[in-house]
Amino acid sequence: MTLLSVKNLRVTFDTEAGKVEAVRGVSFSLGRERLGIVGESGSGKTMTGRSVLRLIRPPGRIEAEEMRFDGIDLMAASERQMRALRGQRIAMVMQDPKYSLNPVMKIGAQLTEGLRLRDGMSAKAARLKAIEALEAVQIRGPERVMEAYPHELSGGMGQRVMIAMMLIPNPDLLIADEPTSALDVTVQAEVLSILDGLVRDRGMGLIFISHDLRLVGRFCDRVLVMYKGRVVEELEAKNLMNATHPYTQGLLNCLPRIGGNRSPLPGLDRAAEWAE
């Protein structure tokens, strides 16, 4: 079943220097599976993720032949309808907990804010639900974390808090924008296994945005490789090692390996024609 289908998505910014096209004709569809979007900085992967939520501010413009989520036409939806979707049915986890949590609000207050205002829950019920969500992302001592401010948490904890926050409304689609790149490898593995478990248990769709191709290959079912606003290759994650596009191969080979031969790492040659 298709949860989300995107056809010919374009994101354009009108700047003083002329039009800048951040995303140029991206199409994909997503069921209840894990889709990875990979590319370097500036490849348009984040913009693609944000477009689904229509979170692009002017002067940016979103155009698409079709953008449909569970039967709802996202291009035609009113701002009011979009607000009802955001968070409730499509949630987004941002990259850096340092900048995405409110620094002057306790974690507990941030987690329960939506429950109290949107769902009209009592303070007590909201608190219980928030603690439950923290437990779901394997935070030890959730009561203590509820009383903490964001700066008192480590990066891994902050990232888990953000995931917990996004999961409270039980969304159908989760967009995770580099959810682990601010984290250590050991914590990274933990956060990924938490995400993995949640996707499996709740049957969510997941869009996982990252610049780390090997990580995505390990974690996702399918991978889109983006370069300068276009998808240059789409492939099953298990076939990643057989990627045919030179850009995908470049992304795979530029990472050092344990026990590698230490010769200079191959750089990426960025051929202009790939962007055509």
């Binding site: 490898v185 090997r214 390990r218 990472l255 344990i258 026990g259």
Partner: peptide
């Protein structure tokens, strides 16, 4: 390191968490 001859559990955990090993 390349031969995975670490003696302590923690070094091994770190080694196994390195993304590149899984795919390589």
């Amino acid at each position: 390191l390349a031969g995975a001859q670490m003696k302590t559990d923690y070094a091994r955990t770190l080694f196994e968490a390195s993304a590149d090993r899984m795919l390589g």
